[in-house]
Design a protein around this nucleic acid. Structure first.
Lengths: 224, 224
DNA sequence: ATTTTTTTTTAGATTTGTCTAAATATAATT
DNA sequence: AATTATATTTAGACAAATCTAAAAAAAAAT
C-alpha cells in the first residue's frame, strides 16, 4: 500500500493525461514526466505487476480502480499542501506547485486528514482545482464561463468549448492555455469586452465571444 | 548544496552522536541508523569526498564545519515541523517524530523560514529541544536538573552528570537514556523521591540522588 | 502493398544506497 | 608478546530508477 515517489508521480501523470477513459501513450507520459520513453516502459511493467494499471505492449496504458485511488490520494495531498502554502504561509499562487510536488509524497494519511481539518476542509485549491476527499471522491469543479467569473477572482482555465484553429490561434496569441491562471480586472459595458490579467504578463482585453468560450475553475470556499 | 535524504540522515546522526567534539565510530552510527557497518563505511567515503566530514579508515568520523551546518538545518526543519504538528495539528508528543523524519527532507528553505514565522519563531520544539535559527546557530538549552523540573512539565533527558557504571546501570534499568522524554508526576516530601512517567511505560519512582544527576531540557516558550 | 516514419520496446550500462560474507585492522586478554 | 575478540573495511551482489543505442512493431505516406 506504499509506493515510491517515482511510482506516485507516474500514477498521477497517467491520471491527468487519461482525460475520459482513453489510453495514455508511452511518449505522452515521457513528455509529461520529462524522461525517456524507455524509462516509461520499464516503469509501466513494474506498475502492472502491482495491478495499478492495465498495460499491453504498444497498446498504451490505463489506470485500474486501485491505480486511480492512489492517484487521487496524491492529488489530494498536493492540493491541500498548496492550499496551506498560500493561505497559511502567504506564498504566491505560482510558487507553490514545486514545493507541493515534494510534500505530496509524505506518507502519513493521519497527517493529511489533520491538515485538511486544520484548513477547514477546503474544496478547491488556490488554482480552483477541486480537492478529493479522504475517500478519494473528487467534487465536480465549479466550472463557469469566463463571462460569469466575478471581477478580481483568480481562476484557472480548465477547458475551451470551441476547438477551432481560429480560436486556438487567438488563445495562443494571448498566451492562454489549459491551466493558465487569470483574473478579470473589469468589464466594459459599452462592448462587453473584458480586461484580463495573467500573473507576470501585461494586462489585455478580450472579446465577449472569446470569454463565452473559455471555461474556468475558481475557489468558492467561503472564508470566515 | 543539496543532499539526498539518506545523506542528510547520516549527517544528522553523526551530529547527535558527536557530543563534544569526539569522533563517532562506525558501529555507533550503524546502530543509530539501523543499518550495517559496511553500509556506513560506504557512505562515509562518499560524504568525505563532499567535504562534509573528516574520516580516516578505522579512526572514526567527525563533521566538518560545512557538515555541521547541513546537519543543523535538518535539525531545524525537523523541530519546526514537530512544533507545527503538535501546536497546529494537535498531534501527540510521541507520534510526531516519525512524520517529522519525512518532512525534514523537504528542500525549500523559503518554506521553512515561512513556517518558522507562521509558528511565531518558537525556540524549542515540543520535547524541549532547541530549534536552530536560519543561520544554524542553536540557542543554549534551558537545562535543568530533574530536581528543578516543574511537575507535569514534559522534558527530554539531555545529559547525565555522573557517568559511573552504577548510575548507567540504574538508568538502563529504568529505561532512561539521552533523549528519553519524561515528566515528573509528583514529589514525595517524606524522602524527596519523585514519581516519573515515560510515555507508553508504567510510572515509577526514583531517588533524589538520581534526579540530581539527570539533566533535562523543556519548552519555556511563553504561549500567548 | 510497399516503403518510410514514428512509436515503443529491448538490451546493456550506470548511479545510489543497500546487503552478506570474507578479510583485515585494532583492542582486549591472558 | 601472543592470542583472542571486536570493530571496521573490502569484495561482490542486488534492487530501484534511470540512461543511450539498437531492434521491433505500428502507423502514415506514397
Amino acid at each position: 500500500m506504499k509506493y515510491s515517489p517515482s511510482k506516485e508521480n507516474y500514477l498521477k501523470a497517467i491520471f491527468h493525461l487519461q482525460q475520459d477513459d482513453s489510453v495514455v501513450s508511452t511518449n505522452a507520459l515521457a513528455r509529461q514526466l520529462n524522461t525517456s520513453a524507455a524509462s516509461v516502459t520499464d516503469m509501466l511493467k513494474k506498475l502492472k505487476t502491482q495491478k495499478l494499471l492495465q498495460y499491453q505492449p504498444y497498446r498504451g496504458v490505463r489506470l485500474t480502480a486501485e491505480g486511480k485511488k492512489v492517484a487521487l490520494q496524491i492529488i489530494r495531498k498536493h492540493r491541500l499542501w498548496e492550499y496551506f502554502l498560500v493561505e497559511k504561509l502567504a506564498f504566491g499562487w505560482e510558487e507553490v506547485h514545486e514545493i507541493a510536488e515534494e510534500l505530496e509524497h509524505i506518507s502519513s494519511t493521519k497527517l493529511i486528514d489533520r491538515l485538511d481539518h486544520f484548513l477547514g476542509n477546503p474544496r478547491t485549491d488556490p488554482h480552483g482545482d477541486p480537492i478529493p476527499d479522504a475517500q478519494g471522491s473528487m467534487p465536480l469543479v465549479q466550472q463557469t464561463s469566463l463571462i460569469d467569473l466575478p471581477v478580481r477572482k483568480q481562476a484557472a482555465v480548465i477547458s475551451v468549448s470551441n476547438q477551432s484553429t481560429a480560436m486556438l490561434d487567438l488563445l495562443k496569441h494571448h498566451h492562454i492555455g489549459i491551466g493558465t491562471k487569470l483574473a478579470v480586472n473589469r468589464r466594459f459595458e459599452f462592448d462587453q469586452t473584458l480586461e484580463i490579467s495573467i500573473p507576470n504578463r501585461p494586462v489585455f482585453t478580450i472579446s465577449e465571444l472569446l470569454a463565452a468560450n473559455l471555461f474556468v475553475a475558481y475557489d468558492t470556499t467561503t472564508t470566515a
